[in-house]
Nucleic acid binder design. Structure first.
Lengths: 192, 192
DNA sequence: GGGCAACCATACGCTGGAGTATGTAAGTGT
DNA sequence: ACACTTACATACTCCAGCGTATGGTTGCCC
């Protein structure tokens, strides 16, 4: 029954700052990642921050690298175990764009591609996902050139979907409307 | 042989500032639209700016409204005259995403959907384009629900393509590779 | 050819957010 | 119980960028 009520007043580590940064990015984008704002959020002042990180950029970089490691390990690795390519792509579509924090961060990064820090990271992640998609389409029976273009199309559709839904509220699909959209997407993009 | 060399030293109008703003947005995004920077670009100081506009936001709004008017009149209106739906969609795909200033501005706006000024504008433009696509797919023979989902898919692919190419240099397609991609897209998305 | 209005320059104030300097409290080993 | 490291607070400086105040210049019109 100690003073552990709301602000959870323990000391912070660099990891706490990185996770807090990722939450902030997911909610309000990279532009909202300000030192003092995040400090308030964590219940401290920026005096603390500059003990853990040399600069704001340093925090951003560390946080994004952490995100990338999680991304690599968690998302694609699980789906990659599915042997049947149709089912694998279907699972990918469903897993993705479920309004989780991961997709929100990805969308936030897409909107920050002018800042030099995010470009190489997004290049790596995008390249990886493109490779994943291309291989899946090859295994689903498409020729090399078609598989590559289909992967481009799919990946662009994914990116655009995130932009239009997470930031603009364009279609604002309901639960079942979303499922129907995904099914339509699969019928259209995945060869028989 | 007067001093009309490079900075074209005539007096400026509000329209000049709006056009300059759009150029700046197309090049470096909305975040780069700063009063003093734009003033330097136009060869004057901000003392001029605040004669024409009350605030920075006012300029942004005026510039975007101008862009929207142009957008409406120029792009869709011409394509709408094409009767044959396959050809109409093909022309749309080709016209679009050719690295012109218009698409660059559109991409810049997509990345600025957190700012309240751009949201209603993008909602109007996106709704209009979605309606255009949905109608085209209906006329191409799809049922209502399928036409809507196909339009969503197409529009998302368009948006994603812009993001990935104009900001990230991901595929960095060459001239003929781009054409092949468009053809693949048409084969995949447009019903026979 | 004088006057008014449009256009622009210069110089300032103000704010938000990054980064620094320095002191202090809480742990932790010994 | 003392030194030493970790974690944080407070109080600054510095800079970019918006907006304001005020006065000067150019063009037009009569």
């Amino acid at each position: 029954m100690e003073a552990e009520t709301k602000p959870e007043r323990t000391r912070l580590s660099a990891e706490d700052w990185e996770l807090g940064a990722l939450e902030l990015i997911a909610e309000s984008g990279i532009g909202a990642l300000a030192v003092e704002a995040l400090a308030r959020r964590l219940g401290v002042t920026k005096g603390s921050f500059y003990w853990h990180f040399r600069t704001r950029e340093a925090l951003l970089l560390s946080a994004l690298e952490r995100w990338e490691r999680y991304e690599e390990r968690d998302v694609l690795a699980q789906i990659e175990t599915i042997a049947e390519p149709h089912q694998r792509l279907r699972e990918l579509f469903h897993r993705v764009a479920r309004e989780n924090m991961h997709a929100r961060i990805y969308a936030a990064l897409l909107k920050a591609l002018d800042q030099p820090v995010v470009v190489p990271l997004m290049a790596r992640v995008s390249g990886q996902r493109m490779a994943f998609l291309t291989r899946a389409y090859r295994e689903a029976g498409l020729a090399e050139a078609d598989a590559l273009n289909r992967a481009r199309l799919t990946y662009a559709a994914y990116v655009g979907f995130l932009q239009l839904n997470l930031t603009l509220g364009l279609p604002k699909l309901g639960h079942e409307a979303f499922d129907e959209y995904v099914e339509h997407m699969i019928r259209t993009l995945v060869p028989e």
